[in-house]
């Protein structure tokens, strides 16, 4: 996951664009672009259904979720429940 600005906050509204296997999020409040690589995009998409990370064997997924949360792209809802922040696809 790559960002063009290290400002983080949860609960922001995003625009999302899928480009090949990657997703680029635009944090509308901060004017910040966030690139989700293939792995991060898969994890983030899974959060659209309020998925849990506990069932995932990969530590990588949890690490990605934590970074997504720092960027505000997902919100932790207690325990291992993660949900996407408000987003509009283009």
């Amino acid at each position: 996951m790559t960002e063009n600005n290290p400002v983080h906050a949860p609960g922001a509204a995003f625009l999302a664009a899928a480009l090949d296997d990657e997703i680029v999020l635009l944090d509308l409040a901060r004017g910040q672009l966030i690139l989700l690589d293939r792995a991060a995009a898969r994890v983030w998409r899974a959060c659209g259904a309020a998925a849990t990370a506990g069932g995932r064997a990969e530590r990588r997924a949890t690490g990605i979720l934590r970074r997504l949360a720092r960027a505000g792209a997902v919100v932790r809802q207690g325990g291992d429940r993660w949900v996407q922040a408000r987003v509009r696809w283009i």
């Binding site: 790559t2 063009n4 480009l19 680029v24 672009l33 690139l35």
Partner: peptide, 23 residues
């Protein structure tokens, strides 16, 4: 990757760097 290209455009001077054009 095209995603990385979009991010790179965000780092340069472009319409993306104008707040009123961002979206």
């Amino acid at each position: 990757t095209r995603g990385a290209a979009l991010l790179a455009l965000g780092r340069h001077t472009s319409s993306l760097s104008r707040r009123h054009r961002l979206e």
